[in-house]
Amino acid sequence: MQKRQVQKLTMIEVKNITKVYGNAGIEKVKAVDGISFTIKDGEFVAIMGPSGSGKSTLMHILGALDTPTSGTYHLDGKDVSSLSDEELAEIRRNHIGFVFQSFNLLPRTTVLRNVSLPLMYAGVKPELRDVRAKSALKSAGLDESHFLHLSNQLSGGQIQRVAIARALVNDPSLILADEPTGNLDTRTGEIVLGTFQRLNKEKGSTIVLITHEPDIAMHANRIIHIRDGKIVEDKINPHPTKARTDVADPI
């Protein structure tokens, strides 16, 4: 994985998207109400909002887990807004890496195998998977001694690093982190945020962080504030909080 060379290409282009739940006759709920923004390659953006603001729905659309009711969404030049289930699966497989609040590692499975899972679905040859998984784990800052441990033998911080490595392993266009620190204590959360900052800086990974905590959002370079399905603020964060570097070392 090399640092992306062109920094200023548009990675995400969202134009006036809406997402409406409920059918005709039932009261309709507009979870996302006409949102537009662009995110350039190599940006570290936090999407912040209280619960019920529509940020989860927005994340599902950005993550190709769902399609918008109207509007367009281009990811890395591809129109994702009107694809079929199978085409969405292809986008997720090759262009997006997810980091979840609840980690979602496979239990009773080794760290290495958890990380190489996306490669299995992408059809990468088994002999290449371990090499790529190990390199992703190193990028995510997990010490090599843990690679063959079972996922349930790790600490919270280690688990989230494995999850980050799993998101990185496909060399995705976009890393989507949904409340990645929500289930971690402050110190471990700091480690994870430091890892994101390092990946963004050193590898030029495009990262979108979804959170409801302003403190967490302050670690990103740009903060998009959402409320009631609308953007209320979209600003550059000139002085992002630096995660303590001493804890961002391999664990």
Partner: peptide
Amino acid sequence: TREIGLRKAIGAKKSD
């Protein structure tokens, strides 16, 4: 169910 959701999120096809 959650495991299936995860597998789909990381790109598993229906047929997988």
